[in-house]
Simulated assay, not measured.
Amino acid sequence: MNVALELEVKNTYEDFILEKDIMYFRVGEHGLVSFHGKNYHVKKRLNTEEIQNITSDSSFFKVNTDSYVNTRKIQHIGDGKVFFEVRGSESKYTSITKLRQHKLKEIVLQQKADA
């Protein structure tokens, strides 16, 4: 009985769902992508096609040259930063260029209006 229960446990590090589990990701050199979740980050090597698929996903917005944020996980945008989940000293955040900050605010407001 215990064996069957152990098989059903999801391995967050290997089997995460991009839109649901990931707050933001960064694309590095040679296909190395760093995925950042609520309490972890995972680095995976992806091929060119896989990188094109995730960077063109409508759930993610390009905030600078190599970083993409999950627009559905954003809590606050300001001072050149995008904050996720909890605010304060425990906040997860990534930086955003001033040029893209305005556009991202519009997208987030539109999503909240649609919800």
Rank of each mutant, 00 (worst) to 15 (best):
R87M: 11
G78A: 13
L7Y: 03
K62A: 08
H36V: 12
I74K: 15
D21I: 12
S58I: 02
L7C: 02
S56F: 02
E50Q: 10
T55Q: 12
F35T: 07
Q75Y: 14
L32S: 07
K98D: 08
L32V: 09
K73Q: 14
I77W: 05
S91W: 04
F83S: 07
N64W: 09
T55I: 14
L5Q: 00
H102R: 08
D114G: 01
V82H: 08
D66S: 15
V33H: 09
D15N: 07
N64D: 13
V82I: 09
I107A: 02
E50K: 07
V82Y: 05
Q75E: 15
I17A: 07
E8M: 03
H76P: 11
K103E: 13
H76Q: 14
E19R: 11
Q111H: 02
I96P: 03
K73R: 15
T94R: 03
D79Q: 03
T71Y: 12
G80C: 06
S89W: 05
G80L: 08
I54L: 11
G37E: 12
A4M: 03
I96E: 02
V86N: 10
T48E: 12
R72I: 13
S95L: 04
T94L: 04
R26C: 08
M1F: 01
V86W: 08
T94P: 02
G37P: 10
V42E: 06
L18I: 10
E85A: 14
G88I: 05
H76G: 12
A113C: 02
V9C: 01
S89T: 11
F16A: 01
F61H: 14
R87Q: 10
A113P: 00
E85K: 15
F35Q: 09
V9K: 09
K112F: 03
I77V: 13
I74A: 15
G78F: 11
V82W: 07
T48M: 05
D21A: 12
R26N: 07
N11P: 00
I74H: 14
N64K: 11
E19W: 06
L32K: 08
N64T: 10
L5A: 00
S67Q: 15
N47R: 00
V63R: 12
D79H: 03
S89E: 14
E106G: 07
F25E: 13
E90F: 01
Y93M: 00
L104F: 02
G31S: 04
S58M: 01
V9R: 07
Y40Q: 04
S58V: 03
S34F: 06
K10A: 03
Q111A: 02
D114Y: 03
F16S: 00
E6T: 06
A113V: 05
Q75F: 15
K81A: 08
L109E: 10
A4N: 03
V42G: 02
I51T: 12
E106R: 08
N39Q: 14
N70E: 14
E8H: 02
R45E: 02
D114M: 05
S58E: 03
A115V: 03
S89L: 09
I17W: 02
A113H: 04
N64F: 08
S67L: 09
E106K: 12
R100D: 07
N39A: 12
H76K: 15
D114E: 08
I22P: 05
Y68W: 15
G80T: 10
Y93K: 01
G88N: 06
V63E: 14
H30K: 06
K10M: 04
E8Q: 05
K103A: 13
V86E: 12
K103T: 11
G88T: 06
